[in-house]
């Protein structure tokens, strides 16, 4: 995935300002930044969910905005906090989306069964998505992203509210995906997680790229967390205390 000069302004606020990033094929790319730094906006523009004011986005060389149909076949997306077809069960969501993606009913049934089993959603067979917990919603979202065997995964906060056991399962799936030749972009606030999983990292601050490249290069000698605090520059984060505690 390659994005070049992506910009988006909401009203007066420049949410994303000339962001350019290259995600090498086969890499596990972590995008980190504070709340409101523009990660979600940038990723939405990169996969075709939000039209940029300026700039371009390509997935495996295909322009996301000029040839949306082809580009979107190659990518699986897990957006943060978006609704699903709420009145369907997990299996029905996957069946529905698989058919939308043009898979044959038989393939859909097999993959849905496997995804539900691996993500441990098959115990809630009769539960509608609207009744899912936050963690279950993340998992069904991840399942929809993986269903059509994309070559690139773009995941916005995939581990938020997911319990540790499921998180370990998901990490296993994602590592397997990368070692099989796929590429992953994930956004997160959790530096330890990015350090543990990713080989490349991009730091976004106030809508701009503060640093990007292989993890070892960006991190330097210290931990990613130290480097991150240094880059986004709020300074004495640890010194602030609460007066009444």
């Amino acid at each position: 995935m390659k994005i070049d000069g992506l910009s988006k302004t909401f009203g007066e606020k420049k949410a994303v300002d000339e962001v350019s990033l290259t995600v090498p094929q086969g890499s596990f790319y972590g995008l980190v930044g504070q709340n409101g730094a523009g990660k979600t906006t940038a990723l939405s523009m990169a996969v075709g969910l939000l039209r940029p004011d300026r700039g371009s986005a390509q997935i495996f060389g295909i322009d996301v905005w000029a040839d949306a149909a082809r580009a979107k076949q190659l990518v699986g997306v897990l957006p943060d906090a978006m609704a699903m077809p709420e009145r369907l069960t997990g299996r029905e969501v996957l069946t529905y989306l698989g058919l939308l993606r043009g898979l044959s009913p038989q393939v859909v049934a097999e993959r849905a069964a496997e995804l539900l089993a691996v993500l441990e959603l098959d115990t809630a067979e009769k539960t509608l998505v609207i009744e899912y917990s936050t963690g279950m919603r993340k998992k069904i979202g991840l399942a929809t992203a993986l269903l059509h065997a994309p070559r690139l995964l773009v995941l916005d906060e995939p581990f938020e509210a997911v319990d540790p056991v499921s998180a370990a399962t998901i990490k296993g799936i994602l590592r397997g995906f990368v070692s099989g030749g796929g590429s992953i972009v994930l956004s997160s606030h959790v530096m330890a997680l990015v350090e543990q999983l990713c080989d490349h990292v991009g730091v976004i601050d106030a809508g701009r790229v503060a640093a990007a490249g292989p993890l070892a290069e960006v991190r330097g000698a210290g931990s990613l967390e130290d480097r991150f605090v240094e880059l986004v520059g709020s300074g004495s984060a640890t010194a602030k205390g609460l007066s009444w505690l």
Binding site: G48, A69, A81, A83, P85, L100, T144
Partner: peptide, 14 residues
């Protein structure tokens, strides 16, 4: 249906 529209946006041609 709120933001469930994203799935439609991600599957153009249907």
């Amino acid at each position: 249906e709120g933001t469930a529209l994203w799935l439609t946006v991600m599957t153009p041609g249907v």
